[in-house]
Design a protein around this nucleic acid. Structure first.
Lengths: 225, 225
DNA sequence: TAAGAAGCTGAGAGATTTTTGAAAGAAAAC
DNA sequence: GTTTTCTTTCAAAAATCTCTCAGCTTCTTA
């Protein structure tokens, strides 16, 4: 799913048409506040942002996104008529993944979109995780230990996935807390309790979760795992 | 290290100057065959390729790189005077990470370079340290000596990392004290005690930690280490 | 070679951090 | 509206870490 933010109706329709003809699903927005509402519901694979917008401009929206844990990995392409170098530099430095100056040809537009998505796919790749006897299929939402299906609650599952995504690297307590609980819980034992439940439910695979005192937790990654 | 391939001497010098002033190390090449030789010796962090080149052109070089396992993850920026859409599309579709049309301003050039490198850094994992039989993976927080995993406490680990980061250079007692403990501990034996624990836990690799009396400690860096 | 300085060592008290079991509070299912 | 399940809190217990102390060793130099 691609989110496209642009106030000019003609351009919007044109681009959406072209993108969907290429097989992409697109949702269009005319300003930043609409986009924000939509982001709360769903995380798109790519956001294409006009810099010149009524209300909050594209750069500000971008900066806002880069500061929020949930949104900061979404690739963003900036589009604008102001093709002064200054804007390009600002956009790239604020963390845009690419920059397309108006007027643009549709072919170039599509190509850049595809390039950014390709780059993104390379890191993400939706696949199963297998570590020891643990097997998780994120697509199907199924967790298995030694062939036995395990039922996890929502938080437990989210936590497990957060650890899996790190691929054997340590995940900070804070990172987990803010990613899963949203930075409110500071001094609470909530995380520990959930880790424990996970360990228990995972049975023999529970030992894959390592505590790194004063830092966080790590799933797998040891020499023999 | 950035590899920059461009046949026009003036542009080459200009860009190299600008990049090195930004703190990047740059090696310049006037054609593809020179680049290829260099690639065999070293993997750079980024290759910047002119499309128009004597001999093999930039697009072909890029395709060649993308087909070789060793080279296919190196980020590539294409540069060219032909800014027809066709070239852009071709460049991006062959797997270029960005595209800069000539004539370009230096600021934009640098910004795009920085953006691509930043993106790349994000995927590239932190480097491991290997000295003798000691192996430290900072991402996983795992320390191994001769293949055996070693458990270190937080302070021990932090101390080890501080020594490793110095890459064989001596680290002052004071530096260690202030970096790890925060400048309060002046006359205490705390540091000595932790060094000792490290040495003991590291076993045979413990001898890598050298005491430099009156100065501090050094990890590795001796002729045969 | 003796005295002083700097670093090493083993033990252990005190502090910190994590784990745990139980239970209250919320949310979802019935 | 009640039951069930999930989530969070709480406080005690366990595990582990950190730092200090005091005697010992090694090195330096006068």
């Amino acid at each position: 799913m691609i989110y496209f933010v642009e106030d000019d109706v003609n351009i919007r329709k044109l681009v959406c048409y072209a993108l969907s003809k290429e097989g992409y699903e697109v949702k269009e927005f005319s300003d930043g506040s609409d986009l924000k509402k939509a982001l709360e519901g769903n995380i798109p694979e790519l956001v294409i942002l006009d810099i010149m917008l009524p209300g909050e401009d594209g750069l500000e929206i971008l900066k806002g996104m880069r500061n929020e844990e949930r949104y900061k990995d979404i690739p963003v392409i900036m589009v604008t008529a102001k093709d002064s170098e200054y804007d390009i530099v600002m956009g790239l430095d604020s963390g845009a993944d690419d920059y397309i100056p108006k007027p643009f040809g549709m072919t170039e537009f599509i190509a850049r979109t595809r390039a950014v998505l390709r780059r993104y796919e390379k890191t993400k790749s939706e696949r199963d995780y297998r570590i020891g006897s643990l097997h998780v299929d994120p697509g199907k939402h199924i967790v298995t230990v030694a062939g036995q299906e395990i039922t996890l609650s929502y938080k437990e599952y989210t936590l497990l996935l957060a650890l899996l995504k790190a691929e054997g690297k340590v995940v900070n307590r804070d990172t987990l807390l803010t990613d899963i609980w949203g930075e409110f819980y500071d001094e609470s034992r909530t995380l520990d309790v959930h880790i424990r439940k996970l360990r228990v439910k995972l049975g023999e695979a529970g030992r894959l979760i390592h505590t790194i005192k004063n830092v966080g937790y790590r799933l797998g990654g040891s020499v023999y795992e």
